[in-house]
């Protein structure tokens, strides 16, 4: 009698365990399906965000050289490529240390500087995308034949990372202080005419497998540590 009761209890327990196991399987199956779906949708959102990016109308500045990515200063035989972001502290240091030497080498007909403005630090200007705006403004200045002037005054007033950067109005003001006052320039800055170009030039920079700024190349050879001395040396070597 009591053994029959025991057996019944055991049977109930087995059934309960089987039910629990089945429930676990069902839950595991459906939660797994749910997870895969969620991840798929997340990926899709990323993909859509990428393809939905509106970069505006691409206007390539007619004065740009090297696949439309750079502005040339000087006409010397040795080409020095300078990739810079207008907000980058290391670029500011490089400009302060080596900028005058570069200008001198260009003025004396030894080198051609190709300035490549790039915008890799957009996320460090509190959403104002100063790097892109500054690069775009430099393209507008190049169209007026005053790239160097704007380039230098922007570096002299380089905003710190994680600040809002210089406003368009301030860029226009600084430009005016170095004799760049044309309406075409002011309109181009206000309308962000060359912003899509700046984005594209930055993409080209990345496609060329450069990652940091300043990136300096002398006659196509990248300088790992671009001090003024090494730069001058590399130019002398390249000149032969």
């Amino acid at each position: 009698m009591s053994s029959g009761k025991n057996r019944a209890a055991k049977a109930r327990q087995i059934v309960a365990e089987q039910k629990a196991a089945e429930r676990r399987r069902t839950v595991t199956l459906w939660t797994s399906v749910g997870v895969v779906l969620v991840l798929f949708v997340a990926g899709l959102i990323g993909y859509t965000a990428l393809s939905g990016q509106d970069e505006g109308k691409l206007v390539i500045p007619s004065t740009a050289v090297d696949e439309g990515t750079a502005f040339a200063v000087g006409t010397g035989p040795v080409v020095v490529d300078v990739y810079e972001d207008f907000m980058c502290p290391a670029c500011g240091t490089f400009e302060a240390a080596s900028g005058p030497t570069l200008k001198q080498l260009a003025d004396s007909g030894k080198i051609t500087i190709r300035f490549h403005p790039v915008a890799i630090l957009d996320q460090y200007s509190n959403g104002t995308e100063y790097s892109t705006r500054a690069a775009a403004a430099s393209a507008a200045a190049a169209q007026e034949g005053k790239f160097t002037e704007l380039h230098d005054v922007l570096y002299a007033n380089r905003p710190e990372e994680n600040s809002t950067g210089l406003s368009d109005a301030r860029i226009i003001e600084l430009a005016a202080s170095v004799g760049l006052t044309s309406d075409t320039f002011v309109t181009a800055v206000n309308e962000g005419t060359y912003k899509a170009w700046a984005t594209q030039a930055t993409e080209t920079f990345s496609k060329r497998d450069f990652t940091g700024t300043p990136t300096i190349l002398v006659a196509g050879q990248q300088l790992e540590n671009p001090t003024t001395e090494l730069l001058t040396e590399a130019v002398t070597t390249a000149a032969g």
Partner: peptide
């Protein structure tokens, strides 16, 4: 470009799934 765009969203989704503890072994 595609990987770079998809990755942050995947990371956030994984973070949220782990936060609520859904299908923990799979995530």
């Amino acid at each position: 470009e595609v990987v770079g765009a998809v990755q942050p969203f995947l990371e956030i989704a994984l973070g949220l799934l782990l936060l609520i503890g859904l299908s923990t072994r799979l995530t």
